[in-house]
């Protein structure tokens, strides 16, 4: 039985080796393409900004046949993205797995050195956009500008709840920024995914959020939530009446990357393939429309350009986390 099994186990190995040999000899110059479905890891829960975006990318890829094999989305939201990062690290050199990432790409490894993940070792495939942040309150709170917000939050003290995605992530950084700047004591409560955070505010279980526009849009359109201030340099075209932080006297902006990365050690020809795919997605009509509709900014970045961008942001986040005592 054992012998027989072993013989069977050897067979695929021989076949793969043979196939590898043939492919390297005969088609050494042919471009790399995936041989099986690509695992498309999403570093966040269903319904959030990253998730909606990843599913759009997947559908665009399918619709225009950018890839001979499908991309299969898999949500790995656990531990502010730690689950996804550890998964990518364990799949080192695997050419059939890519991940949609955000700013927890920097913050989670910084906060949890025991994960032993260095984000800079990931393959820089594409930065698809930079997402923006807005401070939201419920319409019933009767708050329309930052002064009223600060007054109300000051009065409520630590009873003021800010709902956000994950621990030590973008939302908590922005919360501590607001606390520090305005001398507030808002309490931060983490949830799994931006969709859920939006619901917390719309259902009045939280007092405010710093959702991305894409996450709060539905409730904004229905009039349930009100934008107070945008954490951007210029006013967002979609929210022309919402002032930026700079306009209300605190020059400060904060963006979230929407990037696609490969595993550490992904081969260069595979990288070229994925870069091509996501560049095509970036230039597609659907993506352009989505960026406009969801107030996304930013150019396409890949390779060294993206690594440089990461280096700058990694240091900024290290500083921010140190300031709030997370590391």
């Amino acid at each position: 039985m054992n012998l027989k099994l072993r013989r069977f186990a050897v067979l695929p190995l021989v076949l793969t080796a043979a196939a590898f040999f043939v492919s390297t000899v005969n088609v050494a110059h042919a471009a790399w393409t995936p041989r099986k479905p690509v695992e498309f890891v999403i570093m966040a829960g269903p319904g959030g900004g990253a998730d909606k975006m990843a599913r759009l990318m997947q559908t665009v890829i399918e619709k225009h046949n950018f890839s001979p094999k499908p991309f299969i989305p898999v949500n790995k939201p656990g531990g502010s993205g730690a689950e996804a990062l550890v998964h990518m690290k364990s799949k080192k050199k695997d050419n059939h797995i890519v991940m949609v990432t955000l700013n927890s790409f920097y913050t989670t490894p910084l906060r949890q050195p025991n994960l032993r993940v260095d984000p800079l070792t990931f393959k820089p495939i594409a930065r698809m956009a930079e997402d923006t942040f807005i401070l939201w309150v419920h319409k019933d709170a009767g708050i329309t500008n930052i002064e009223q917000f600060v007054d109300a939050a000051k009065k409520a003290g630590s009873k003021w709840t800010m709902a956000g995605t994950g621990k030590g992530g973008e939302d908590e950084l922005l919360t501590s920024f607001l606390n520090k700047t305005y001398g507030l004591k808002m309490k931060y409560v983490p949830f799994k995914g931006g969709g859920r955070v939006a619901k917390e505010l719309a259902g009045k279980h939280a007092n405010s959020t710093v959702n991305n526009p894409s996450e709060a849009l539905g409730f904004y359109e229905s009039g349930d939530v009100v934008p107070i201030v945008a954490f951007t340099k210029d006013r967002l075209p979609l929210f022309p009446d919402t002032p930026t932080m700079g306009e209300v006297g605190v020059p400060y902006s904060y963006f979230m990357q929407r990037s696609v990365v490969g595993t550490p050690g992904m081969t260069d020809d595979a990288y070229e393939f994925y870069k091509g795919v996501f560049e095509k997605v970036y230039n597609s009509e659907e993506w352009k429309a989505y960026m406009k509709k969801k107030s996304l900014l930013g150019d396409f970045l890949s390779g060294n350009g993206l690594v440089d961008y990461w280096k700058v942001n990694n240091e900024t986040h290290r500083k921010m986390l140190k300031e709030i005592g997370e590391i």
């Binding site: 269903p46 319904g47 998730d51 909606k52 599913r55 559908t59 989305p73 989505y290």
Partner: peptide, 10 residues
């Protein structure tokens, strides 16, 4: 329904 949602977007 999360996947259906992705479909609706496209």
């Amino acid at each position: 329904t999360a996947i259906l949602l992705g479909g609706m977007v496209i």
